[in-house]
Design a protein around this nucleic acid. Structure first.
Lengths: 234, 234
DNA sequence: AGTTCATTCGATATAATTATTGAATGTGAA
DNA sequence: TTCACATTCAATAATTATATCGAATGAACT
C-alpha cells in the first residue's frame, strides 16, 4: 500500500523529528536555508544565486515545505518562499555547532583565509553594537545589493565583495572595519577581511551574519522601496 | 575515481553541516541519541532497548560516529558508545522544536494521552527545583532501573512504568506527583501521568527529561556501584 | 591453544534520494 | 484567446541509504 505502516506513538514522533533533520541533511538545501534567512525569495532568484536548475531548486523547496522548514505564497507569476520560523535558523545553527566541534574540515577551511591563528577572532554582536554607538567603527555589508536592500545593520554600507577593490579608496583608514555577510561561515566576509588586511586596513569579521543579528532582536535598517528589485522580481 | 569531487570552500562547509543533519535524519538513530543521552551504552544494550538486530545498530552507530555525533571506547569485550558532546543534544532539541512548530502529528500524539487540553501543562525545571526544595512534591523517575542507576534527579524514586501499578499503594496521596523520563517527548511519562490521574492522584510531567536537567547544570544523583548492571554489562 | 561472546565487516537485495530532462499547469498581459 | 513566463510534475537514470545474513575480528576466559 502507499500509506505509512502502523507505528506506535513513540516511533511516529521519531519519524516526524527525523523528517526535519533529513530535510536539512543536504548541502544544497542548507544553502537554500542560508539564502532564505536573508529574506523571502522566488524559486527563480534562488536558482540563480545557487547556480542550479530551476526544477531542481523547486523540488528541494517542496521537500523543505513538506518538512515544515519553509512556507510559500504566490505573488503574481512568482512564488515566494520564506523560512517558516526562527526555529529553523536555530536548528541550522545547532547543527553547525556540532559540525564545528567535530570536523577538522571546518577548521581547515577557515585556516585557509588567515595565516596566523590569532587576530582572526571575530567581533561579537554586543561588542559591535557598543562600538557602533560610540562611532568607532565602519561596518561593511559584503553581500550583494539585493540582499542588503532587504535588511542590514543600521549605518552599514554595502560593499559587495565583487566591488571591494574599486570601493577601497572610499574607506577611512583611521577606523577599524567590521565586515559581515550571510552567517557565521559565509566565506565572503572572510575574503573581505583577508583582502582589507592585505591593503593595510584594520579589519575583523562579525561573529555571524544579518539573520542572527535580526533573530537577536537588534535593529535592522531597510532600503526604502525604490530602484532595487522587489521580492518576487527576476 | 573514488574520491570526492572538487568543491569550493563554501560548498565543502555545507557538505560538512549536511553530514551532521543527515546523521540525525533517521528515526532509529534519533532513538539511539535519546538513549545515549541517558548515559553510555554498549551496542548490545542499545540493540536490546530498541528491539533491533545488533548489526543494524552497529552500523547506525558507525554512521553517527563518522558524523561526530558519538564517540566510542572499548571496555573489555564491550564497546561503549556515548554522545560526543552536549551540542548533539542541543541539535536534537532544536530539531524537535522545528517539528513541534510544524507537525500536526506531534500535537496529535500528545492529545492522545489527555482528554482536556488544559492541565496537561508540564512543570518547568526551575519550578520543580523550588518545589523540591520546599518538600512539596514527590518526584518519580519512570525509566527502567538501569537508566535510573546512571543518574536521576536528587530525591527521585524509581517507578518504572511497568511497575507503576504495583507501586501505586506506596505513593502519598496528599502531595503532587511529578513524573519525568528520557526527554520532552518520552511517552512513558505521559502514560504515567495519565494513569496516575485516572487513579485520583494529582500528577504532572516535567517539561523534559534527565539529560536536559543534567545539561542545565543541575544536581544529579547516582546509584552507588552495587547490584545494578554497570556500563558495558549485558 | 581453544572457546565464548560482543562487535564489525562483506555481500546482497530493497528502497529512497538526487539530478536531469521535457511536458504540463497556472498566472498575467496582449 | 493567445502568448510569455514562473513553477511544478512525471519519468528516467545514477547514486546512496537501509536491513539482513553469515563470516571475520578481537578480547577475555578455561
Amino acid at each position: 500500500m502507499v500509506g505509512m505502516s502502523i507505528r506506535n506513538p513513540k516511533q511516529s514522533l521519531y519519524v516526524q523529528f527525523a523528517a526535519v533533520a533529513k530535510a536539512l541533511g543536504n548541502p544544497q538545501r542548507l544553502e537554500l536555508v542560508e539564502h532564505l534567512a536573508q529574506g523571502p525569495r522566488s524559486v527563480d532568484a534562488l536558482a540563480t544565486k545557487l547556480g542550479l536548475p530551476i526544477a531542481n531548486v523547486s523540488q528541494h523547496l517542496q521537500a523543505m515545505r513538506r518538512a515544515g522548514l519553509v512556507t510559500s505564497d504566490r505573488n503574481g507569476k512568482f512564488i515566494n518562499y520564506r523560512l517558516a520560523d526562527d526555529s529553523v535558523l536555530a536548528a541550522f545553527a545547532a547543527i553547525r555547532v556540532v559540525a564545528e566541534h567535530h570536523s577538522a574540515e571546518v577548521e581547515r577551511v577557515v585556516r585557509g583565509w588567515f595565516d596566523r591563528h590569532d587576530d582572526m577572532e571575530p567581533v561579537t554582536r554586543d561588542e559591535l553594537a557598543s562600538r557602533m554607538k560610540e562611532g568607532l567603527v565602519t561596518v561593511i555589508d559584503v553581500r550583494p545589493a539585493d540582499e542588503f536592500a532587504l535588511g542590514h545593520l543600521p549605518g552599514a554600507i554595502n560593499v559587495p565583495l565583487s566591488e571591494l577593490g574599486s570601493l577601497l579608496p572610499d574607506l577611512r583608514t583611521d577606523r577599524e572595519i567590521v565586515a559581515y555577510c550571510r552567517g557565521p561561515w559565509c566565506v565572503m566576509s572572510f575574503e573581505a577581511v583577508a583582502e582589507l588586511r592585505k591593503r593595510g586596513f584594520s579589519a575583523r569579521r562579525l561573529e555571524d551574519g544579518l539573520p542572527e543579528w535580526r533573530a537577536a532582536g537588534m535593529a535592522v535598517e531597510q532600503v526604502l522601496r525604490g530602484d532595487t528589485a522587489a521580492v518576487g522580481g527576476p
